[in-house]
Design a protein around this nucleic acid. Structure first.
Length: 425
RNA sequence: GGAGGAGUGGCCGAGUGGUUGAAGGCAGCGGUCUUGAAAACCGCCAGGCGCAAGUCUCGGGGGUUCGAAUCCCUCCUCCUCCGCCA
């Protein structure tokens, strides 16, 4: 949720930033509604003051019955007036809230302008993109040949866009999750949490998935709960409506969870394999920081995701998203894209965002910078560290051999307890 | 699923129709005292909007009333007991 005050105080700057996301962005409606509300509230205050002052005399024992009923009639008129103003204010506030809940975050000044991913900016890259000296196999075909993926079975159970892992494939997902969690807790200072995967509507509103993107989520009937599209939802809402001390910050959580996405807008795209499924697993990192610390925390968090890829020796590049490609609540976002030598392309495997106070306003997460000081909203950040299904895909693409085996990276071998996966035939 | 109980400021907790936006306590901040600290004592101390006067907020929403934290309706959440169950 945006801060109307901030926008009104520096309209030109806000407009300039917002137009990086949408060249036609405008705050006219906000300004109109805000002014309308201000005016009504002013009237309400004056009338209410008169009413309260006058009604103090009502309990006066000295009043005659006649005086009392005159006063009552007079106060009744005022009371009706207050009620009318109340209704007017509420109506405006509904519109105002609707606008605020459906308006995305202001891009950070460093965010490049642009509409599509072509306008994203390369920040850095790591490793040398592999080139196989043989004809590489697609990850889904090789996965099935190795007996570690079974998409036919997944389709029988759940339909298109689901994955089923078998044998060492199932173990590989589990190994990756443990490996990533261990690194984030042991080396990067995160507390591991295991959260509910089914959340209430308010939680989805708090992190920004609702009300605007309800079609993207799986919803349960009749309980009106939502399957989390990312652990970000449950983890960020851990601190919903909490007042923290400045000394509590930063708070860093990492969580492993399944993620559920309807993929409503992507019919026909990436239907095969592990690229885009309705359910996948992910290790997520979430940080809550003081406002002045979030920028540095964002860089650090991105580095924590990169550390996983480096440990697995998977070449990647870091892209800064342009305004048009930015998620709804993000002010600044780095996508990490892993190199896929068979598909011959870079594919997003992590997305690391700084939300600044956008989610904290919605979820009401505040802190006192110093004892006795006025509360401020925390800044929230999150990033994948990493998406596990896509990591499996990247491993199969990068670590396959000419004779159709899959090598296990050194860092993963303690978790896998094998050094390679070969066809069982 | 059935039956009860409860939601008040950072925390605990008074408050059942009229100077209660809210007693008291804890925590915090400032001070007195002390070589220093502790203890003791004194003062301050919810948030939003507004330049201010002021106004709004006692889980959310609606209602009754001249007037609601307080009465009524409804929804949400939590707790206890019974039933069922991994």
């Amino acid at each position: 949720m945006l801060d109307p005050k901030q926008i009104i105080n520096d309209l030109d700057a806000a407009l300039e930033q917002m137009r990086k996301r949408d060249p036609n962005a405008s705050f006219d409606e906000l300004l109109t509604l805000h002014e309308k509300r201000r005016q009504l509230v002013g009237e309400h205050n004056d009338l209410r003051h008169k009413q309260r002052t006058l009604s103090k005399g009502f309990g006066d024992k000295g009043l005659s019955d006649e005086e009392r009923s005159t006063l009552r009639a007079e106060l009744k008129v005022m009371s009706d007036g207050v009620k009318d103003l109340d209704d007017g204010i509420k109506a405006v506030e509904v519109e105002l809230n609707d606008w605020l809940m459906n308006t995305p975050n202001l891009p950070d000044p460093s965010t490049p302008a642009g509409q599509t991913e072509d306008d994203n900016v390369l920040i850095r890259s790591w490793g040398t993109p592999r080139e196989h000296d043989f004809e590489g196999q697609d990850h889904d075909a090789l996965g099935e040949a190795l007996g570690i993926l079974d998409f036919d079975a997944a389709a029988r159970i759940s339909g298109a866009r689901f994955a089923l892992y078998r044998g060492l494939g199932a173990r590989l997902e589990r190994a990756l999750a443990s490996f990533m969690l261990d690194m984030h807790t042991d080396s990067h200072g995160y507390e591991e949490v295991l959260t509910p995967f089914l959340v209430r509507r308010e939680a989805m509103i708090g992190t920004g998935q609702l009300p605007k993107f309800e079609d993207d989520a799986f919803r349960t009937e009749p309980d009106d709960m939502f399957l989390i599209p990312t652990a970000e939802v449950s983890v960020t809402n851990i601190l919903r409506e909490q007042m923290l001390a400045g000394t509590d910050l930063p708070i860093k959580f990492t969580a492993f969870s399944p993620c559920f996405r309807r993929e409503a807008g992507s019919y026909g795209r990436d239907v095969r394999g592990l690229t885009r499924t309705h359910q996948f697993q992910k290790v997520e990192m979430v940080q809550f920081t003081r406002e002045e610390d979030s920028e540095a925390a964002h860089e650090a968090l991105t580095g924590h995701a990169e550390a996983i890829l480096q440990a697995l020796n998977l070449p990647y590049r870091v892209m800064q998203l342009c305004g048009g490609d930015l998620g709804f609540g993000a002010a600044k976002c780095y996508d990490i894209e892993v190199w896929l030598p068979v598909q011959q392309c870079w594919r997003e495997i992590s997305s690391c965002s700084n939300y600044r106070d956008f989610q904290a306003r919605r979820a009401d997460i505040r802190y006192r910078p110093e004892p006795g000081a006025k509360p401020r909203f925390v800044h929230t950040l999150n990033g994948s560290g990493l998406a596990i299904g896509r990591t499996v895909m990247a491993l199969i693409e990068n670590y396959q051999t000419a004779d159709g085996r899959l090598l296990i990276p050194d860092a993963l071998q303690p978790y896998m307890r094998v050094s390679e996966i070969a066809p069982s035939a």
